Simulated scan of single mutants.
Amino acid sequence: MLSKAKIKWIHSLDLKKNRTELHLFVAEGHKLVTDLLPIMPCRFLTATAEWLQNHPNIRSAEIVEASLQEITKASNQQHPQEVLAIFEIPDIALDLNKIKNELSLALDNIQDPGNLGTIIRTADWFGINTLFCSIGCVDAFNPKTVQASMGSIARVSVHYLKLEEFLPALSIPIFGTFLEGKNLNEFNNLPEAAVILMGNEGNGISEKLEQIVNEKIYIPKYPAGSKRAESLNVSIATAIVCAAFRK
């Protein structure tokens, strides 16, 4: 049985300050939970009797059998599933020597948790291990971000930093997306070691970060000059740029 106290504890992790203080986050659903279980320490797991019977070897500090109705009370999802778990937020140190020799992503003030989760998933797909976020970005362990990442949050390390100070110190090229940038299709040999900087959903890259960009790039619209969509969703744009770098 899932007690009222446990349900209250789970919902307390909706707030960033509680996630930060307790170093815990919530994951829901069969695929996400089973993806995270082999990689991250699980502090608490609640699931239906049928789910637990089908997964007898799961490892968690605490396991509670519950009805779907009880899990629904603890869930943030519109359509709750048969399992919910609490995982420990990893404390991952930055390996600067490694970062200076590989492709990384940086995000300037991304606000939508779904966008951040999708970008984390995109980074994972393209073999990008590290994501740098400005201090104003949405929390990577927001429940909506975690769900949108589809388990990639366990494989991509996310760090919150003063990008205007940190990125130039890496001494590798910084590419940023701008409407007045060079056509992405005109680049022949994009570097393997670089930072791709993506801007805020509504305002793009801020002026202070524009100053540290070495190369401005632009995703061309087809046909050129047509009056179609004014912009791309930032997660879609990130995927297009990552694909160009991985050619």
Rank of each mutant, 00 (worst) to 15 (best):
T238N: 05
S231L: 04
N214L: 01
S12Y: 02
P173H: 00
F166H: 10
G114N: 15
Q53T: 06
M198Y: 02
I39V: 15
G151S: 13
S104F: 01
I128A: 03
N233A: 09
G117M: 02
P143Q: 00
Q111V: 04
N233G: 10
E21C: 05
L163F: 09
M40S: 04
G225L: 08
L37I: 15
N101R: 15
I99L: 15
E50R: 05
A61V: 00
S104C: 14
V158R: 03
K247N: 14
F44K: 06
P191S: 02
Y222I: 12
S206W: 12
G136N: 09
A148F: 05
N115E: 07
G202T: 03
I39Q: 13
G136M: 00
E165S: 08
A193I: 08
I63Q: 09
R246L: 12
I71C: 09
I172S: 01
N109Y: 14
F166A: 02
S152T: 03
E207T: 12
D35F: 12
S67W: 08
E192V: 03
D14Y: 14
S75Y: 11
M40P: 02
A85G: 03
L24P: 12
T118P: 13
E70T: 05
T48P: 04
Q78E: 15
D14L: 12
I128V: 15
L45H: 02
T20S: 11
I58Y: 03
W125A: 14
A229Y: 10
H159R: 05
K73Q: 14
K16P: 13
V213Y: 03
Q53I: 00
N129T: 13
N115W: 08
H79M: 01
L107N: 15
N129W: 05
A66C: 03
V195I: 15
L163H: 08
K221L: 13
C242P: 10
F132I: 01
A237D: 13
K100G: 12
H79I: 02
A66H: 05
L190H: 06
I240Q: 07
M150F: 10
N185T: 09
N200W: 09
P220E: 01
V64P: 11
M1G: 09
E70C: 07
K4H: 12
P173Q: 00
D124S: 14
H11G: 03
P223V: 05
P113S: 11
I120L: 12
F178G: 00
I63H: 10
S157W: 07
R59P: 05
Y218F: 15
A244M: 04
K100S: 13
E164C: 01
F87H: 07
E65H: 05
L209T: 02
E207Q: 14
K208G: 00
I89G: 06
I174L: 04
F44M: 09
W9S: 11
G176Q: 06
N129M: 04
T145F: 11
A194N: 06
N233D: 12
L2T: 00
V156H: 07
T48C: 00
W125Q: 11
N101L: 10
Q147N: 07
N76V: 03
Q81E: 15
N129V: 01
I89T: 13
V138E: 09
L45T: 01
S104D: 01
E62Y: 02
P56T: 04
F126Y: 15
A27F: 12
D139R: 06
A49N: 10
H23G: 01
L52T: 07
P56S: 06
P143K: 00
I217H: 00
E50N: 04
N129D: 14
Q111P: 12
